[in-house]
Design a protein around this nucleic acid. Structure first.
Length: 831
DNA sequence: AGCACGCCGACT
DNA sequence: GTCGGCGTGCTC
């Protein structure tokens, strides 16, 4: 007997275990580990994934698998294994973990229809009352009716089903249209050279663009896709349209397989010569690749030190070995230029996965990886699941980026997944950043990761000069505007020279903090060293970590000034202020409002590049990886907005942002300048960023994390509760904390319940509980067990419990666990 | 999660 | 009696 273990598509905790199914003879050859199958489940039919095989089963009544859905299993055995680990670590159903690894087209949907019974006799029909008979006749005539229609007449349907004259059939609808749809592309041609020449002379001298197009066809008589033609000649659709309308050219729409990059030409690029430093880095990364052993490297390189070129050449090494590479980049920097660089070097061997792809396009790219048609996958967070089978190298660029953490279940961090996969493949993991996460830096310093530094910029350009402006001083001098004298002056000079400026407004989340405009002190929690958050509803300030609260102070507790108020500025306000103070200035504003439309992001950036505005104003979305030759001034309007967020990573984020910003100015001929406006110029993250003292900052931050026990010196679990009414939620909050206190390991530290940054969302009140615990496998296991029980304990349907982990160690925790278990076995065997 | 079963009140 | 509302428990 051969039995398949199947994880079914029912994302709840009590169905989160393998169910056993018989494999019919005709499916024996088709089914593999990782296969997607259709199975009977209860009174339904559902999709599932086969995760293993057995020869016996403890279940008494086994059902058979209906069907294997794909010729090639969507998941590899390694990914199935990873799915189990993720479900365990992130406390999510296994099916949720597995589904997050494959393109959306595999999700499938269920369609239910009501159908006349296949076996039906006349005498049953006679049992129906007249109304039922009427409905049945309609059903018989139409053949079937849909579930949506059935829901409109639920009782009648139920009667038909009860009396066995009708039956329900469930179809699993594959999203076939996404998987095979072809794209429509316009092709253009004009093959008759004599005719084209005649056209050329008939056109008026002013029709330059049209003449260029005609000349192109005289030189290249082959047909060409319209987008390609437009790109090559730098012209627009309307020019070609005119020529078609006049009968000189022809075009038609044709269907072809999708390829999002088909219409672009990628100029072949060759490896650039490396600096000695880059060469050393390349050698350092290549060593473990050649040795084919698991190894993690932090590539700590200043902005402009040429990390990408090092990546490209290490990938070449991997390809020479016949292995594969995954490259993760933050979504925001997955720009056409970046893609261009990889496509240019590796051509057809690259698959690109980014969020702008349609479901179908994403599937196409994924399929190239699964079939082994490409060896390099570049993409955002989810590309970490690229179904390669011989991974030699995983690169995470800008590894400190927050976008590597998924906000929905499973709330994984791509860095954690990368570590696990690299180990499974004996591959090398490279974490690249100019401003690594404190955790990564710590691991590099303690020797867990190898630490390779790139300290020089490739073209030897100096770092821009940084000026920190004390906004308290500005206020004292009578300047109440949001631009300091220094920034105003620099901006005017920059305009005069015909250069460009970038202004940052780093506003994250919805948190507002209270600060004294006189002395720059913020109101902080006496227990936590974290800014208190202003709550407009009841005029209080609260700590989001421990729950401490007090009334909104009217005077500053430090200097007794009355100039105390809450902060939170928007880009629109800054733009208005800019236009008021600098009449005639052209500003491009980038924020959620102006970039929500598809393609708006790239459009605004290219407008700025072309010099259509003097100032680019935006939030952190413009801080990353952008390189504008004419930008010589970078201004940070208020460095504090991020610093005082109630987040233990606030200082780290501030430092990282300021360092990134520094890299934006003066990348080319003109020297750059950075002006940082702040109310806390003495804060270490601002001071050390301004003086480029990276080492000192990380050292300082590690000390603070250690003192207050935050990652990497502990592990963190966040529990978010939400409920429709406040009182009920508070009751549950208390009960849950009590439960965890009673059942969790004693050395866990509980903080909360406290309202999170957003205390109410979509008419639901929210509470947060934070658990700090030791990176010890026994403690972790106990805690996970406790939280699991917690799930089943509160059966109020309205109460939602969501859990996420701040730091997961999929490897070393397990290593220790395995070691301890084997020690236990040893001890046992001695007795 | 879905879906059936089963218990109970309202109605023909 | 029958219909339909809603709580309970199971799904290989």
């Amino acid at each position: 007997m051969r039995v398949a273990e199947v994880i079914v598509d029912v994302p709840t905790h009590d169905t989160d275990r393998p169910f056993d199914y018989l494999i019919p003879a005709e499916l024996q050859e088709e089914i593999h580990i990782g296969s997607r199958v259709q199975v009977p489940f209860g009174h339904r039919k559902v999709i599932g994934y086969c995760i293993g095989f057995k020869t016996t089963s403890s279940s008494i009544r086994l059902k058979s698998i209906y069907d294997v859905m794909d010729l090639v299993p969507p998941l590899t055995p390694e990914l199935v294994e990873l799915g189990k680990v993720m479900a365990d670590e992130y406390l999510c159903p296994t099916i949720t973990a597995l589904q997050s690894m494959v393109p959306a087209v595999f999700k499938g949907s269920y369609q239910k229809v009501i159908h006349p019974s296949s076996e039906m006799s006349e005498n049953i029909f006679s049992l129906l009352n007249p109304a039922e008979q009427q409905l049945f006749k309609i059903l018989a005539a139409r053949g079937e009716y849909t579930w949506e229609e059935a829901c409109k007449i639920p009782n009648m349907t139920r009667r038909l089903l009860r009396k066995l004259v009708a039956e329900k059939r469930i179809f699993v609808t594959e999203r076939i249209e996404d998987r095979i749809t072809k794209q429509k592309v316009t092709w253009v041609w004009g093959k008759d050279i004599h005719k084209l020449k005649a056209a050329l002379s008939s056109l008026s001298a002013r029709a330059i663009r049209q003449k260029e197009v005609l000349q192109y066809f005289i030189d290249h008589p082959d047909e060409i896709e319209l987008p390609k033609l437009l790109a090559r000649l730098q012209t627009t659709r309307s020019t070609v349209k005119k020529l078609v309308e006049q009968g000189w050219l022809y075009w038609e729409e044709r269907e072809q397989y999708r390829d999002p990059y088909k219409n672009r030409q990628f100029e072949q690029t060759t490896p650039l010569p490396l600096t000695p430093e880059q060469q050393q880095a390349l050698a350092g990364i290549s060593k473990p690749i050649i040795e084919e052993k698991f190894h993690t490297i932090l590539l700590h390189g200043v902005t402009g030190s040429g990390k990408t070129e090092v990546y490209l050449q290490t990938i070449e090494e991997v390809l020479r070995q016949g292995r594969e590479a995954i490259v993760l980049v933050p979504e925001i920097s997955l720009t056409p230029q970046m893609v261009q660089r990889f496509k240019g070097r590796f051509g057809e061997r690259v698959a690109v996965l980014h969020s702008r792809l349609s479901n179908g396009e994403r599937y196409d790219e994924w399929r190239k990886i699964r079939r082994g048609e490409v060896q390099v996958a570049i993409g955002a967070r989810s590309a970490i699941f690229a179904p390669f089978q011989h991974i030699g190298l995983i690169i995470i660029d800008e590894e400190h980026e927050t976008s590597y953490k998924q906000e929905e279940n499973p709330k994984y961090h791509a860095r954690d997944i990368a570590l696990w996969r690299a180990q499974a493949h004996h591959a090398t993991l490279v974490l690249g950043s100019a401003t690594p996460a404190v955790e990564s830096y710590y691991h590099a310093r303690t020797g867990e990761y190898e630490w390779i530094q790139l300290k020089e910029r490739v073209h030897g350009r100096p770092f821009p000069q940084v000026q920190v402006v004390d906004m308290r001083e500005e206020l004292r001098l009578g300047n109440r505007s949001m631009f300091s004298g220094a920034l105003t002056g620099s901006l005017i000079e920059c305009m005069k020279r015909g250069e460009q400026a970038v202004l940052f407004l780093n506003r994250r989340g919805f948190a507002t903090f209270v600060m004294c405009r006189e002395c720059g002190e913020t109101i902080t929690c006496p227990h936590c060293d974290i800014s208190l958050t202003y709550h407009q509803t009841n005029q209080t300030v609260r700590c989001h970590y421990c729950g401490y609260a007090e009334g909104l102070p009217q005077i500053c507790p430090h200097c007794q000034s009355k100039h105390i108020r809450h902060f939170g500025t928007g880009t629109q306000r800054v733009e208005a202020e800019l236009k008021r103070q600098f009449p005639g200035i052209q500003v491009i504003r980038m924020d959620v409002d102006t970039t929500s439309r598809k393609g708006a992001h790239e459009k605004l950036l290219s407008q700025f590049r072309e010099g259509k505005a003097q100032v680019l104003l935006g939030t952190q979305m413009i801080a990353k990886g952008l390189d504008f030759p004419k930008v010589t001034l970078v201004g940070v309007i208020a460095a504090d907005t991020m610093l005082h967020l109630p987040d233990f990573r606030a200082a780290e984020r501030t430092f990282q942002l300021l360092m990134q910003v520094g890299g934006r100015a003066g990348r080319h001929e003109q020297p750059g300048k950075v002006v940082i406006q702040t109310y806390s110029p003495e804060h270490y993250s601002i001071r050390l960023a301004a003086s480029y003292q990276t080492e000192t900052f990380y050292h300082q931050e590690c000390l603070i994390r250690k003192r207050h026990s935050y990652p990497p010196f502990c592990r963190l679990f966040t529990i978010l509760l939400s409920y429709p009414d406040r009182l009920g939620l508070m009751k549950y909050g208390q009960e849950i904390v009590q439960f965890i206190r009673n059942h969790a390991p004693t050395n866990c530290q509980l903080l909360g319940p406290v309202p999170p940054t957003i205390p109410r969302l979509k008419d639901r009140y929210r509470l947060q509980v934070l658990i700090k615990f030791q990176a010890d496998p026994i403690v972790t296991a106990r805690l996970k067990q406790t939280l699991h029980k917690l799930r089943n304990l509160f059966d109020d349907k309205e109460l939602r419990i969501s859990m996420s982990r701040e730091m997961v160690d999929l490897i070393s925790d397990r290593k220790v666990l395995m070691r301890e278990q084997s020690e236990e076995i040893e001890i046992l065997s001695k007795h």
